[in-house]
Design a binder for these strands. Structure first.
Lengths: 120, 120
DNA sequence: CTCAAAGTACTATGGCTGTCAAACTATGAT
DNA sequence: ATCATAGTTTGACAGCCATAGTACTTTGAG
């Protein structure tokens, strides 16, 4: 049974240790972006095993680790499950507008709609 | 010498062909981000050879090509010089706020103080 | 105690990519 | 014509990284 002081700690970084390169490295991967997207859409924390990602468990662990070490998510255990929280406030203070801008991007390939060539 | 109809064309993509993955892949590299930063700060077009990047010319060519094919910049020749324009309007229409958010990120002088890895 | 569930650690691998050097092209000036 | 300037192309290489498989650990339930 765990409490608020569960010692199965994970290596989180402080908000002021978040770097531009770390953030972009973390968010450039589509699987990780999908994780962030699901977290953002959910509004509540999600266990690692409950994400809709098409990779093996070990690969999933890898992605969560990258996100955690970049400062994008925070993790904590609840029983055998590891919950994930999007560090919205920290991210907003370090990179205002970045997460929103990235989450707003359409992930599906755009269809060529024969539009006017908007120059410049 | 040619002017507006210089046929030494380069493979630009349309605004609606810009993808999230392509944009992030282009902007995750610090050298390319530096190029975009210099373009944005300048306000006017800059020739490839006039950027402050410390990589070889051939590597520079590679980075400009990635940025161009991702739809981040537009290029055109003026004599032997190849000028670069930031596609602000197109980027803003496809990824509102993204460029601004990324350019606002503090680029740490990447001094490796060796205090991160290891952990379990 | 025993077992299943949830993740992690470790290892290997394949592919991608940033890098440079060298040879090449194209343009403009002398 | 000759030369210098600006950038490209090709080839090679090193390093990183996403991926998966297997074994292992921890936790909670029966």
């Amino acid at each position: 049974m765990q409490t608020a002081t569960d010692e199965r700690v994970t290596d989180h970084i402080e908000a002021d240790e978040i770097t531009a390169q770390g953030l972009l490295d973390a968010l450039v991967d589509p699987v990780r972006r999908s994780i962030v997207r699901q977290l953002s859409a959910s509004g509540s924390d999600i266990a690692c095993g409950h994400f809709d990602i098409n990779v093996s468990r070990s690969t999933g662990t890898h992605h969560f680790k990258v996100l955690r070490q970049a400062g994008v998510i925070r993790q904590y255990y609840v029983g055998t499950s590891k919950m994930n929280t999007l560090r919205r406030t920290d991210l907003e203070s370090v990179a205002p507008g970045l997460i929103d801008a990235i989450l707003a991007l359409p992930e599906t390939a755009r269809r060529h709609t024969a539009a006017a060539p908007g120059r410049r």
